[in-house]
Amino acid sequence: MAEKVSNQSLVTWFLQRLSGLFLAFFLFTHINVHHFLHREGLIDFAVVVERLSGSFWWKVYYLLFVPFCVFHALNGIWAILADYRPSGGFSLTVKALFWVIGVAMTVVGAMTLTNLFGAGV
């Protein structure tokens, strides 16, 4: 008897790849600018505000970066858990919890960023 199979895990698998490829670009730039190219002194509020006000595109970049990161992280953990064939109740609880954590982290990230964007927003 043919079983009706949900496409959800296929979609999330694909989205994991897609967000991963975006993150490869995002993280390469992020690490270059904030770790490698930082050559003296402490990184403080003024330094970060100055960097992020350098271009309008930094705002677009970071506001996209945060949700991509959060999605990739939680979806990745979910993929690991799903490998151990969790029960329906456990799956539902974890999914609900991850949605709450994901939305919360995205909101906190966006609030952090708007503070670091300075007066330019």
């Binding site: 403080d44 509020f45 003024a46 970060v48 982290m105 906190v108 990230g109 609030m111 952090t112 503070n115 670091l116």
Partner: peptide, 14 residues
């Protein structure tokens, strides 16, 4: 996120 979110409370805590 924990370290950077201090920016929400302002410059000094960040």
């Amino acid at each position: 996120t924990y370290v950077l979110s201090s920016a929400i409370s302002g410059k000094d805590s960040f």
